[in-house]
């Protein structure tokens, strides 16, 4: 029997029916057609399927869809604010941090989860945080640089807004 699941995906109330054995990845891609989240392995080893589930970075291929009941899910489709790219997306473009681009959604989601926790990570913190995301094209150099650059941009924007806010 199918299960009825209520969630918020990228801020929008979303309901779906799924089988108990369906993974969140399958439901996102096949039922909801949110195909920005990719399947590279379905065993939790590549990070292409990364999403944020109730503020936790997870491999959606390792989460059962029924576990998402009443949860908030963020996927790559929710990163940009309308036509305005998230600083990470912009940095990936500016730094040529993608070649084929299949790993990119996973890296973006993972990197955002990092910067939400740690706004000024070191290079090695970035490297270890995204060690669960495989990229076979880039050798990671430009990806790591893009994440560090985005962190910079976000810190500067934040400090500007804080400064502005502090003015009488």
């Amino acid at each position: 029997m199918k299960q009825h699941i209520c969630t918020h995906i990228n801020g929008e109330a979303t309901e779906f029916l799924c089988a108990t054995e369906d993974t969140l990845l399958q439901v996102l891609r096949d039922n909801l057609r949110l195909t920005g989240t990719k399947e590279g392995c379905a065993t939790g080893d590549c990070g292409a399927c990364s999403v944020v589930l109730d503020n936790r970075l997870v491999c959606s291929c390792l989460v059962l869809a029924v576990e998402a009941q009443h949860s908030r899910i963020e996927t790559v489709e929710g990163l940009a604010d309308g036509d305005t790219l998230h600083p990470l997306q912009q940095a990936f473009l500016d730094h040529a941090a993608l070649q084929c681009g299949i790993c990119t959604p996973g890296f973006l989601v993972a990197a955002k989860a990092l910067l939400d926790r740690n706004p000024s990570p070191s290079e090695s913190e970035v490297r270890f945080w995204v060690a669960g995301n495989l990229c076979r094209c880039t050798g990671y150099d430009k990806i790591v640089r893009a994440i560090l650059a985005a962190a910079d941009t976000m810190r500067n924007t934040n400090s500007r807004t804080t400064d502005a806010g502090a003015q009488p």
Partner: peptide, 22 residues
């Protein structure tokens, strides 16, 4: 070094890879 023409599609999840086609 301009931004690649297919860049936006690939950072927003819009690009259609083989398994994304239905």
């Amino acid at each position: 070094r301009p931004v690649r023409p297919d860049g936006i599609d690939k950072v927003t999840g819009r690009a259609v890879f083989s398994a994304d086609f239905n």
